[in-house]
């Protein structure tokens, strides 16, 4: 592997922690090693849980984290990449060129977290209506509970 990235293990699964600008090189190396499928792309907003302990010492925790799961079917191996994304510049390079299957997943992350992927062919909302404002899975966005009113409900005493 040409790029050196910090590595940890979580429940017997290999976890790599590349920086956003290391991501493409790391993923390129893994693709050459036989990780031909990007199983999952998702993100986590660590706004209300900043002091997480499962990061290696030389990785600076940021608010957002993009989590990419790669899978090498032939080698029966999985690897997870956790990319720290700063809140003031939430941009990650897109994996679309290597893994066309990440198209919808990256759009989903963009839609729900507001993290955009540089180089993605169609960075638009996928699940929510196009005119929607905000990114609901961010921790500073409320769940949106609406008190359900029943008609002819008894008046509160």
């Amino acid at each position: 592997m040409t790029t050196i990235v910090p590595e940890t293990s979580s429940f017997d699964q290999r976890v790599l922690h590349p920086l956003p600008d290391q991501l493409l090189a790391t993923v390129g190396d893994l693709h050459d090693e036989g990780f031909l499928t990007a199983v999952d792309v998702t993100a986590v907003d660590y706004l209300t849980h900043p002091g997480r302990t499962d990061l290696p010492a030389d990785v600076c925790p940021e608010r957002f984290e993009v989590v990419v799961s790669l899978h090498a079917h032939q080698r029966h191996e999985r690897v997870r990449l956790r990319v720290q994304v700063p809140a003031d510049d939430p941009v990650v390079p897109s994996l679309f060129d290597l893994y066309p299957g990440t198209e919808a997943m990256e759009r989903e992350v963009f839609d729900l977290f507001g993290i955009s992927f540089d180089g993605h062919p169609d960075m638009t909302r996928i699940l929510l209506p196009e005119e929607w404002e905000g990114h609901p899975l961010r921790k500073d966005v409320d769940t949106g509970r609406i008190p359900v009113q029943f008609r002819e409900a008894p008046v509160q005493r």
């Binding site: 929510l128 609901p136 966005v141 409320d142 769940t143 949106g144 509970r145 609406i146 359900v148």
Partner: peptide, 14 residues
Amino acid sequence: SSGGMFNNYAIVQG
């Protein structure tokens, strides 16, 4: 009828 258990941003509550 009422949004059910999904009382959140995405579902019309009834």
